[in-house]
Write a protein that binds this DNA or RNA. Structure first.
Lengths: 138, 138
DNA sequence: CTCATTGCAAACGGTTTGCACTGGT
DNA sequence: ACCAGTGCAAACCGTTTGCAATGAG
């Protein structure tokens, strides 16, 4: 059973309705693997379902993240993005040229446990964005 | 000479004009010590200068951060905030009750140098926001 | 059949822009 | 006197909302 099917079943079994809109948006997120803005999701999903509205994309993304089917994160510049699955990673963005580098969550694991210990919080942040100057621009 | 005066002189000596609006906005940032949203700056500054417009606040804050007189950062929920000085700190926000905890930059210093080493970037991020559950809500 | 979900259109909040006026240098 | 900086009003973009119609269960 594909991963999308797993989620589909969960949606139904939790008493929500599995609409074509939800399936397509899920597939878009799943297929891209990356984090997408609502506008990006809309653009892609629309190709399979021209009748889809942006409103529904917003509502569906909120629905998915509220119920743990997708994750929402604020990426640099304050844009909201969504992604499925647990591919935890972070970004470093160069302030000058705009290039991006991915940082695995493993590199932050120590920091996370140290912070959890010192603050008592249980951390769930799924995405951090660091800014700086890349080797080329510094 | 006060810190505001230092900046004032720098503004003039770099060929920019030192307007009452810029002085008041600088004082607001300096006095608060915290990071403020443009709207908050506007609200406070307006008390001393009722004729001040929100447009000017936006343009002045951009001017200040572009020229290194203030720092801009994206805080959780994608809001843009500004602050003066180098009071580097970060926040942990509880997803449930919304309470905030300040995290000193010292706790992240090790991570920063490790990241700089492994990526070659020179990091300048002035503010990170972590999300999680506070001791009370977890 | 019922109610969750959708589409449409309109409102919203934060931010940006064009343009004429003002005031710092 | 000149031009950087301001105020005003209107545009802009991403997001949210009210309401009637639809379609999944």
């Amino acid at each position: 059973m594909s991963c999308t099917e797993q989620i589909s079943n969960q949606i139904r079994s939790r008493g929500f309705r599995l609409t074509p809109q939800r399936m397509i948006i899920l597939q878009v997120l799943q297929h891209s693997g990356e984090h997408l803005t609502p506008a990006e999701v809309y653009e892609i999903a629309r190709q399979n379902m021209p009748s889809l509205t942006e409103t529904t994309v917003y509502r569906t993304l909120e629905f998915l993240s509220e119920n743990g089917f997708a994750m929402a994160a604020h990426i640099g510049s304050g844009k909201l993005v969504y992604q499925v699955g647990g591919h935890d990673h972070h970004h470093i963005i160069c302030q000058k040229c705009g290039c991006e580098l991915e940082v695995s969550h493993a590199q932050l694991a120590d920091l996370y446990s140290a912070l959890e210990q010192s603050t008592g919080f249980r951390l769930t942040t799924s995405h951090l964005t660091f800014f700086g100057l890349c080797p080329h621009c510094r």
